[in-house]
Protein backbone atom coordinates (compact mmCIF):
# COMPACT_ATOMS: atom_id res chain seq x y z
CA UNK A 1 0.00 0.00 0.00
CA UNK A 2 0.97 3.62 -0.44
CA UNK A 3 1.81 5.32 2.86
CA UNK A 4 1.97 9.12 2.92
CA UNK A 5 3.32 11.54 5.50
CA UNK A 6 2.55 15.24 5.83
CA UNK A 7 3.92 18.25 7.72
CA UNK A 8 6.23 17.39 10.66
CA UNK A 9 5.48 13.68 10.28
CA UNK A 10 6.98 13.91 6.77
CA UNK A 11 9.95 15.85 8.11
CA UNK A 12 10.68 13.38 10.92
CA UNK A 13 10.43 10.34 8.66
CA UNK A 14 12.31 12.13 5.92
CA UNK A 15 10.12 11.34 2.92
CA UNK A 16 6.65 12.23 1.65
CA UNK A 17 5.52 8.70 0.78
CA UNK A 18 6.60 5.10 0.33
CA UNK A 19 5.25 1.73 -0.78
CA UNK A 20 4.94 -0.71 2.10
CA UNK A 21 4.16 -4.43 2.02
CA UNK A 22 2.50 -5.25 5.31
CA UNK A 23 0.40 -7.90 7.01
CA UNK A 24 -0.84 -5.35 9.57
CA UNK A 25 -4.57 -5.77 10.15
CA UNK A 26 -5.17 -2.30 11.59
CA UNK A 27 -3.65 1.18 11.48
CA UNK A 28 -2.32 0.64 15.01
CA UNK A 29 -0.54 -2.53 13.90
CA UNK A 30 1.01 -0.68 10.97
CA UNK A 31 2.20 2.06 13.34
CA UNK A 32 3.77 -0.58 15.63
CA UNK A 33 5.47 -2.20 12.65
CA UNK A 34 6.89 1.12 11.41
CA UNK A 35 7.92 2.22 14.92
CA UNK A 36 9.96 -0.97 15.34
CA UNK A 37 11.68 -0.39 12.01
CA UNK A 38 13.84 2.69 12.63
CA UNK A 39 14.33 5.51 15.08
CA UNK A 40 12.93 8.15 12.72
CA UNK A 41 9.58 6.30 12.60
CA UNK A 42 9.58 5.94 16.37
CA UNK A 43 10.16 9.70 16.62
CA UNK A 44 7.27 10.44 14.28
CA UNK A 45 4.84 8.04 15.98
CA UNK A 46 5.94 8.69 19.58
CA UNK A 47 2.64 10.35 20.52
CA UNK A 48 -0.29 8.91 18.58
CA UNK A 49 -2.70 11.36 20.23
CA UNK A 50 -0.90 14.13 18.32
CA UNK A 51 -1.56 12.38 14.99
CA UNK A 52 -4.43 11.84 12.60
CA UNK A 53 -4.81 9.15 9.98
CA UNK A 54 -6.68 8.98 6.69
CA UNK A 55 -7.52 5.76 4.84
CA UNK A 56 -8.06 6.24 1.11
CA UNK A 57 -8.36 10.00 1.77
CA UNK A 58 -11.04 9.72 4.48
CA UNK A 59 -10.30 10.45 8.15
CA UNK A 60 -10.22 7.25 10.21
CA UNK A 61 -9.42 5.92 13.69
CA UNK A 62 -6.24 4.10 14.66
CA UNK A 63 -8.15 0.87 15.33
CA UNK A 64 -9.61 0.89 11.80
CA UNK A 65 -8.95 -2.21 9.66
CA UNK A 66 -6.57 -1.94 6.70
CA UNK A 67 -8.27 -4.61 4.62
CA UNK A 68 -8.72 -3.33 1.04
CA UNK A 69 -7.08 0.02 1.82
CA UNK A 70 -4.76 1.36 -0.91
CA UNK A 71 -3.53 4.58 0.67
CA UNK A 72 -2.77 5.45 4.28
CA UNK A 73 -1.79 8.98 5.31
CA UNK A 74 -0.40 10.14 8.65
CA UNK A 75 -0.38 13.80 9.64
CA UNK A 76 -0.77 16.22 12.56
CA UNK A 77 -4.14 17.84 13.28
CA UNK A 78 -5.06 20.03 10.32
CA UNK A 79 -4.69 23.80 10.33
CA UNK A 80 -6.68 25.06 7.38
CA UNK A 81 -8.53 28.33 6.92
Amino acid sequence: MNVMYFAWVRERIGMPQEQIETQAATVAELVAELTAREERYAAAFADISALRVALDQELAEFDAPLSGVQEVAFFPPMTGG
Partner: peptide
Protein backbone atom coordinates in the same frame (compact mmCIF):
# COMPACT_ATOMS: atom_id res chain seq x y z
CA UNK B 1 -17.50 26.52 6.67
CA UNK B 2 -14.66 28.28 8.46
CA UNK B 3 -14.92 26.08 11.56
CA UNK B 4 -14.82 22.94 9.46
CA UNK B 5 -12.13 24.07 7.01
CA UNK B 6 -9.93 24.93 9.99
CA UNK B 7 -9.78 21.39 11.36
CA UNK B 8 -11.19 19.06 8.68
CA UNK B 9 -9.51 20.24 5.48
CA UNK B 10 -6.02 18.71 5.16
CA UNK B 11 -3.83 21.81 5.21
CA UNK B 12 -0.82 22.41 7.44
CA UNK B 13 0.84 25.78 8.02
CA UNK B 14 4.47 26.41 8.77
Amino acid sequence: MMDYLKSRAPFWKK
